[in-house]
Design a protein around this nucleic acid. Structure first.
Lengths: 363, 363
DNA sequence: AAATTGACTGTGCACGTACACAGAATTAGA
DNA sequence: TCTAATTCTGTGTACGTGCACAGTCAATTT
């Protein structure tokens, strides 16, 4: 039973000391070209695989990661990614991964920049960032690059050509629109209307919503076999109950043949009661996210499908990818789109369980 | 910057040596009640969390796990769980987890028992088993229990009351039947027929198929609002192309109003060409598993939904749970049902990617 | 009383790598 | 050629835990 080969085996084979092997391994310099070549040859020949356990134990340095995401106090969506981040931190504790949060107030560009500057002043090995604002995001990311600080984006994607841009992890909005269209198309009759409904302020300005809409439209324009008319709706102030009710009512009067509605945000539950009041209980409803308010209508067959994007995973995988890059020196994929789960009452349990489970992705 | 507390901190606090702390930690005995109490108190007070990194490094013992599953040469389904197992082994290599395979020839009860006995003769810390045969499975599991050998079941579940039964990880057949029914119901009109079709020898004898059927039937009997007639079909020899063609043809003549078919196995693709030949292109098709043959019809809108059970995960999570139990001494859930993913051409990419990705779940 | 047993306890090395430090070899400058 | 600076190399300790071993003390046996 020969045990795994370690640096001392390489040292022996290369005719040097383990100190020299270590210097080659970590590019610490001060190694003669000859010795270096011999070490590298020995490593290859013996197929050396570093023992990350011993490495983590011996290493003094801790890996510091800064997290720049919206404050979850203001926007409950961000609680989930944050939970994912904390889970990742916990499972990597023994690897000396330390995480500091720099939450910024939602929609506050100034605060976003401010917190970004704060990170730049400290010494971090990587940053996990949701660059919510286009212009300010570019500014900060550029500064990160200048300081040779690698970063991973989650949720919002700003495309940049830089070796310090490690990865984007997030949702695939366009495809989710396609998916919603497919589901509605499956459930409604030929000649009927399908409605896409944005319940969000400045929906025209939110890229993820316009992407969803594009996917939704593309599905129907590519499926010419069936004739389905598409209606577009948009209503910003969801707290204006009466206004929303009136808006939906007028829409349904104008287009009495609407058989399905795709709500592009997590607010589908707002529509449920309105449809009930209007006596339109046979309209198919597709929405997003397994939030509390959406679950009751799902169980109740009022919402037919919820598309789930597992926001916890965004945070979790973000940290895990940083770990893979920093500690394990692994190649990581630059764009990682999370699965779009089609959730209905019959399989919702699995996805809720997954939320609660303490699954820890490593390596 | 105070570092994490270790056994020597506890030793100091409890006024004993780290050797004694170690004995308490691992229940090695030979500790006086007084010392034991002091150590436990100190551990609680300081909230001691063992450093699994250092532990894994120092520990001499390797964790040996035997795997008793069907030979993947004979049944390609088992390739996926095997890949999952090998991934898990790779990512746990530094933790000294070693896996030995004991594949048995499909449908060969004698060989199954034989390989089981083989395992019993060696010294293993745990077994991962798919107890395909009811009677023989019980026999082997009983022997495992007698030898105090913990086991984890995958894919097939034999319920046993034993502390050595660690977990079952597998599919939820009943719910997958429900799910298929829901999807078909969504896509077909009131008054139409829905067909459930088993393409498997001795389908009446396969529990997972009868469970699927039960789920399928229950959905419609609980949803009395819509009148959908259910037809049951079963055909064993899928290599008899003509026979199958004839069978389907007769079914469709007898029940011309069939608008949807649920194939309870991964063989849905066999039906596609037959339906085409019969000119019945508007029948909705729901099947199982992202195997190669099913993908083309899925892209082609011939198969509408595939229910995916991620067979790789069965193997992967099986090993990971054994690891959690053996090494990390964590509580693991006794029954873990894998998510039922609803896959359509628009989101299939994510699930195929996941198959290829080297994601490693730990802890 | 001496010897033996057994329960209990402390000490110290090992795991494989990181890293500090000292010492050797080489080079540069005069 | 010699010295000083620089580059290169080997040695040894540390990380936190597991575990072997030796040692202490009281109870029991001879």
């Amino acid at each position: 039973m020969k045990s795994r080969i370690g640096i001392k085996d390489i040292a022996l084979k290369a005719g040097v000391s383990k100190g020299t092997v270590d210097r080659v391994l970590h590019n610490r310099g001060n190694v003669s070209p000859g010795a270096r070549a011999k070490v590298i040859a020995a490593m290859k020949e013996l197929d050396y695989q570093p023992n990350i356990i011993a490495s983590a134990l011996a290493s003094k340095k801790s890996w510091k990661i800064a997290v720049l995401i919206p404050d979850s106090q203001k926007d409950p969506f961000w609680e989930q990614p944050k939970i994912g981040i904390l889970k990742a931190e916990k499972s990597l504790r023994d690897y000396k991964v330390v995480i500091d949060f720099y939450p910024f107030r939602d929609a506050d560009r100034e605060h976003f920049l401010q917190q970004g500057e704060e990170i730049l002043e400290k010494e971090y090995h990587a940053v996990l960032i949701s660059p919510s604002f286009f212009k300010e995001g570019q500014t900060i990311l550029k500064k990160f690059e200048e300081q040779k600080l690698p970063y991973i984006q989650i949720n919002t994607f700003l495309n940049r050509e830089s070796e310090y841009f490690l990865a984007y992890i997030g949702q695939d909005s366009y495809t989710s629109g396609l998916l919603a269209a497919k589901l509605l198309n499956f459930g409604i009759n030929e000649g009927a209307c399908a409605m896409i409904l944005h319940l969000e302020k400045e929906a025209y300005n939110a890229k993820h919503l316009t992407d969803k809409e594009k996917g939704f439209n593309d599905f129907f324009s590519h499926n010419k076999k069936r004739k389905i008319e598409i209606i577009r709706g948009s209503f910003g102030d969801i707290f204006d109950k009466n206004g929303l009710h009136k808006y939906i009512e007028e829409m349904l009067i104008e287009h009495p043949n609407i058989q399905g509605i795709f709500v592009t945000t997590s607010k589908a539950f707002h529509i449920v009661s309105i449809l009930k009041e209007l006596g339109k209980t046979d309209i198919k409803l597709v929405g997003f996210d397994l939030i509390e308010e959406n679950l009751a209508p799902l169980y109740d067959d009022k919402i037919h499908f919820l598309i789930n994007q597992n926001p916890q995973k965004q945070g979790f995988l973000g940290i895990m990818n940083a770990f893979n890059h920093l500690v394990l020196k692994k190649e990581i994929k630059h764009v990682q789109l999370l699965p779009l789960d089609v959730v209905m009452k019959e399989n919702v349990q699995y996805y809720l369980e997954e939320k609660a489970k303490e699954l820890h992705l490593v390596f």
